[in-house]
Every structure is written in structure tokens, then in C-alpha cells.
Design a protein around this nucleic acid. Structure first.
Lengths: 225, 225
DNA sequence: ACTAAAAGATGACAAATATCATATTTTAAT
DNA sequence: ATTAAAATATGATATTTGTCATCTTTTAGT
């Protein structure tokens, strides 16, 4: 297993603010974990005793609603840190994490990283900034949910995935998820999600190959009422 | 104007983590501000050059949606700190703040408090914890918006206000806001908000006196489908 | 106290979305 | 390669919510 000091993923998250010495200490105690597609990384209400650093793959953070449906709150890819909030507040996690495809992760025990959080102000500030950014995003999503149509939200998530996670060589969105997941992200019934994607396809705004989606007309998504 | 060191409000927010010396320094440079009901404290996109500490009154934090409607993201009362996120990220504010009734606030310039944020780990950790809590709440709201009916959300906001901000001696919710604001909180049309509150009234779940609302049957709200 | 303006209330109708049923296609396991 | 299970697709219909119009009540300013 590679060392944190030389791990490129770290550049994408708060761990970049740790000193060389701190990183070596973290590296020494971290453990590598592999999760298969569909596997649960942790579940709402669990006590986490560390954080996960995503090396490859994608996972969804979800929260169970009282109606029994899961709502996707955030998608996390390479560089993401899972369990930050629980680490900071020392509460049980309020979200579940499920792998959307095969994932490689590093697990860093709480005991080790907690010290850094308390003693390295640069690290703390960086975690704080990330959290502030998460909050901004969450508020933004809240407004979308409250004020925009399902169609508009679907257009936005397609653009979001396109802009943040990119496409493969053929132009297909590099994150491939089920219609059910799309429904769970935009907060609608699976049938409605399917219907809207079908409609986009008919209108030539997207095209599909199996579960893969390619955006054919980004501008149409952008200007969709 | 009273001094921060002896201000009771501070106990409710992160300022409690400042040392006596730091507090005195903050106290020396803070300015008192009064806002009248309806007055804008700051607007989305503004550069804030400090944070506001709420001494009395209530304000709403809102975000403008593309459809032209404001969405209330959070209600802030005594002890709340406005502008935390902007302080941390050094970005323009992503929310607007509007007084819902007459408010007394203290304004603390960024220059002064920024130092503490960088140098007092206890303070930084406290701000971080508050932010983590805000994030949890925001995610929670997101799920409500996405998965629950307008009626259910209305029931929840009534309970939320009851539980978090309390009632006056006659049992009326101590926060008094317009139906339009209720609509903007639950993310619906004003008419729908009015209709639902009327329905609650008919069913004896709430009673009203002018704009004041009293919860008559908390359990009914709790179990509302 | 009077009056204009704002807020609240309600009906009628339109639009968006959910639900249920069922058919088809794709995926994954043997 | 075959087949069962899962995912996708689509129609019919019900439910929820939004919009527009109009009326009544409350609030705030002179």
C-alpha cells in the first residue's frame, strides 16, 4: 500500500495541510479498504471511529426519510473525506455511505487524526473551509429542492455530474448510476426520473448507451425552464 | 453599550471559547447595530467585513432562487452569529439576512476576529462544530424538502419553532411571522401555506390570534402523515 | 378614528408529480 | 448460452400543489 506522503489523492483534501511528520504518522496507522459496488461503507446512526479517504470510485451519502425512501445528499469521489462531520462533532454519523461502483479507500483511525485536528491550526482551518463549502452546497441544494421543478433539478444534476466529475473519452458521464439513484438525488419517484430522462432523449438533449448517459445539448439543459 | 465579557448572549455561541483578553479586544472594536422589522442586514453576494452577533430579535437567512422566490434557509435568534461562513471562506456571502422583527446586534469587524480564528484553536474548533451542526441541519432540511409533503413540512416547522424558540406566557409561538414567510420556509406558494394553516385551524390542531399561532395538538402535528 | 395598503382567506381550475399496472429490455448468475 | 431477476419504459389515473381571481380582515400611517 502506498504512503500518504506520496499519495496524490491527498492534494484534493484537507490532508494536504498536514506536515510531513504528521502525514507519516497518519500513513503508519491507516488501513486500505476495498468496497464493491453497492456495498455499505457505513450506515446512518453508526459510530464512526475514523475517516475514509477516497482513492478511487464513487459513493453516495444518503439519509433515510420517514417515508422510507433514501435521499442522496452528496456524491463523493476521489479525494473526498467521509466522516468529517462525525469526527468534528463526536456524534454518530447522520448519513449513510454506499459505494456506487468499486472503490478503494484508506481508513484513518479517529485517535490518530483527532490530535492533528486539535493541534494543527492549518489543518483545522482547512477542515473548517471544506465544511463551510459543504454547507454552501447543501443550502444551494435545499433551494433547488424547494423551488425548482423535477425536470429542472434533473437538468441540474446532469450538468453537475458533467462539470464536477467529467466524461470518458466518448463523452459519456464518467459517473454511471441507476435511474433509481437519479430519482433519489433529485427527490422524485423512480418512474418520474425515468420519464424525464426518456423525454430528454427524445428531444435529443441526451443520448444513452445502457446506463451510460451523454449530454448532447448542454445549452438546452442550462436554459431549461 | 455593554461589554462582551459580561454579555450573556456570548454563552450561546462560539465567542464563549475566547479568552478574557481576546473578549476585551473584541469588545473594544465591536459596534452596536439596531435593525427594524423587515430591514435587510446584508444581501446575497455582498462582501461582509465582519460577523453579527444577535442580542435580541429574529432574522431569516434566505437565498434567491432562479424563479425569483426567496427560500428561507435558517432562522436565527439570540446568540446566533451571522456571517460565519463568509468569515471562514473569505468569500462573498451566499445568503441574505432580513430582520423579522426589531433586532439588536453587535457587529464585530473581520480584522479583529480573524486573528482569533487563526490563533485560538479552541475558538476555531468551536466554530467548526457549529458549522458541522449547521450542515447536519441543512442536510436534514434537504431531505424534508425532497421527500415530504407540504403539509408535513408545515407541521415540522411549527414543531421546530415551538421546540427551539419556545412560546410566550399564553402558549403562542414566540416567533411571529407572516404566512408568506411560512411559505418561503416550507418551500411552497403563499396560498398553499395559508390553506394548510387554515386547515390545521379547522381541525383544532392550532389556533390563531392575529398573526400569532398556538399549537393546540402537538401530537397531531407529530403524527401527521 | 379613518383609510389605504398589506395580509389573509377561499374558490375554481391548471399543471406537476405520484402511484399503480404492465410490458420490455438489460444485467448478472448459473 | 440460458434464464431469472433487476432495471427501464410507458400508459392510465389519482393526488398534490400552483396559479389566478376575488373577497375579507388586519395592520399601519396620518
Amino acid at each position: 500500500m502506498s504512503k500518504c506522503e506520496s499519495c496524490i489523492v491527498r492534494e484534493f483534501n484537507s490532508l494536504k495541510s498536514l506536515s510531513r511528520e504528521e502525514l507519516m504518522r497518519v500513513s503508519a496507522c491507516k488501513t486500505g479498504k476495498i468496497f464493491k459496488k453497492g456495498q455499505v461503507i457505513f450506515e446512518e446512526g453508526e459510530t464512526l471511529n475514523g475517516v475514509y479517504c477516497v482513492k478511487s470510485g464513487v459513493c453516495k451519502l444518503t439519509k433515510l426519510s420517514e417515508n422510507g425512501k433514501d435521499q442522496v445528499v452528496k456524491l463523493v469521489v476521489k479525494g473526498g473525506l467521509l466522516g468529517k462531520r462525525s469526527l468534528v462533532t463526536e456524534q454518530k454519523t447522520n448519513l449513510s455511505a454506499v459505494a456506487l461502483n468499486d472503490m478503494e479507500m484508506c481508513f484513518i483511525p479517529k485517535s490518530e487524526i483527532m490530535d492533528d485536528l486539535n493541534k494543527n491550526p492549518k489543518f483545522t482551518m482547512d477542515v473548517l473551509k471544506t465544511m463551510a463549502e459543504d454547507l454552501k452546497e447543501s443550502d444551494q441544494s435545499l433551494v433547488s429542492m424547494a423551488q425548482k421543478s423535477v425536470k429542472r433539478r434533473m437538468a441540474e444534476i446532469l450538468m453537475y455530474i458533467h462539470d464536477n466529475f467529467g466524461t470518458d473519452d466518448d463523452g459519456y458521464l464518467s459517473i454511471v448510476i441507476s435511474r433509481e439513484d437519479y430519482a433519489s438525488i433529485v427527490g422524485t419517484a423512480t418512474e418520474s426520473a425515468i420519464r424525464i430522462l426518456s423525454q430528454f432523449k427524445k428531444e435529443g438533449i441526451i443520448s444513452t448507451k445502457g446506463k451510460q448517459i451523454k449530454i448532447e445539448d448542454y445549452v438546452a439543459l442550462k436554459w431549461m425552464e
